[in-house]
Amino acid sequence: MTTPLLTLSDVSKNFGTNQALSDISLEVNPGEVLCLLGDNGAGKSTLIKILSGVHKPSSGTVEVEGKPVVFDSPKAASDVGIATVHQYGGTFPLMSVARCFFVGHEPTKGVWPFKYFDKKAAGEITVREMQKLGITRVTDGSRLTGALSGGERQSLAIARAVYFGARVLILDEPTSALGVKQSTHVLRIIMHARAQGIAVVFVTHNVTHAMAVGDRFAVLIHGKKADDFRKGERTREQITDLMAGGEAMAELEAELAELTGPVQTTP
């Protein structure tokens, strides 16, 4: 048994009297996809912010490869290899693809004061890395990022994180704004990152997408971990019920049944 890349033990977070997260324990291993499921307001965002160094936990510990860490800033988290990709975050629509890819990590040539941003190398690397992720439409690093589709921009952000040494990739709702085809593409990229030995934390409320790529699952409800299981241990219905708050959903179905006739559920 290897040490997990990232371990959370009894992590809680409160903002004043508001308990956003209570006693969350999770593990993420290299080459594994952990799906973090939960309805809106379940505490997913708070958890991501703790992992990415935006917030510090009120109690509990975060460990990277068995060593306890406290992140003072998002940079501290990215320094140990934790990269967070938000829905459109990290991509700048009015910048070229190459400029966007290398924001904050620009390759330079020459000697100060004539040190300059090597846009040629940047363009070539960007195109190559994006092609690796199956974005074949981008053949020129000087293309504006805003001209890419949502899925392509998401891929650009993921390619960027992977290229700059991400070991843990946190994807915050990467598919929620995308169409079916684009989502499939992002899911394929997740599997690609997983195959490279990256630990992926996939945050979503889409059970279908989660089940397609997840190795482990954790369901958050009202800031608590409601369930925690491996691939194949739960059915889709069980997960959906759990996320919707189980009983509440059954009640709603009964209520709807009175109004419109029985709700069709898959056998």
Partner: peptide, 17 residues
């Protein structure tokens, strides 16, 4: 590049270091 990035999205620019 930083100037473009800050004007494009200040939050993301900060997150990129």
């Amino acid at each position: 590049n930083w100037i473009f990035a800050i004007g494009g999205d200040s939050q993301s620019a900060r997150a990129a270091g």
